[in-house]
């Protein structure tokens, strides 16, 4: 990973020094956020262990197919955003902008799918207070959804900076991408814990 980056930066001729993508402030956020989410996951595991039958039977109500589509949508968005970082480093700003928009649209699709999923669950009477499984379901997906919405704000800032030749900065695009990949990573863990794990 670090090697390919160094090679690309060299090809661009801007710097010869390996560097941390984005900036240290964003990495403080990402690492801390992962610690906070890990604590939620551990608490989820403890409750799941205590009420194994409740959790397994409640899990049957989740739609694995919507979960898979959601995962694919976010993975696609991460690919768009990663490509946009490469293109920004290469100076192809027009294409980088289009891919950033693509990543953001995937985020919007993710939110719409989640809204549909929540509304069908609520329609079936499976709400926040139904049981501990659905409490964790709404809490974890809700907090993650907040991160997705915030990620759209970050991608929006990246888009407007890319659009203005005076503001274009590789580090800013990397910062947005770092955040977006974290959102993706967290979803993959939530998907595995809530939808897949039996």
């Amino acid at each position: 990973m670090a090697n390919t980056q160094t090679a690309e930066v060299n090809a661009g001729g801007t710097t010869t020094r390996a560097h941390l993508p984005s900036n240290k402030d964003m990495w403080v956020f990402v690492l801390g956020d992962l610690v906070i989410f890990s604590s939620y996951f551990i608490i989820f595991e403890i409750y799941r262990h205590q009420q194994r039958q409740t959790f397994l039977s409640a899990q049957q109500h989740l739609s694995l197919s919507i979960g898979v589509v959601n995962t694919l949508v976010l993975l696609a968005s991460s690919w768009f955003v990663a490509q946009s970082v490469q293109l920004t480093r290469a100076g192809e700003y027009e294409r980088a902008m289009r891919l950033t928009v693509g990543g953001g649209l995937c985020g919007v699709v993710f939110i719409l799918l989640k809204a549909y999923e929540w509304s069908t669950k609520i329609g079936h009477g499976l709400t926040f207070g139904s049981n501990d499984f659905f409490m964790f379901y709404y809490m974890l997906t809700g907090v993650h959804l907040f991160h997705v919405a915030l990620g759209l704000v970050f991608l929006g800032v990246v888009f407007f900076e890319l659009r203005n030749p005076k503001l274009r900065r590789v580090s800013m695009v990397e910062t947005g991408a770092t955040y977006w990949h974290m959102v993706d990573l967290l979803w993959v863990v939530i998907f595995a814990l809530m939808y897949v794990m039996r």
Binding site: N23, K24, D25, M26, V28, F29, G32, D33, I36, V143, F146, H147, L150
Partner: peptide, 13 residues
């Protein structure tokens, strides 16, 4: 520093 702003996002969550 900007990292304090990011920390404030944890607080909001």
């Amino acid at each position: 520093p900007k990292w304090l702003a990011y920390m404030s996002i944890w607080m909001i969550v």
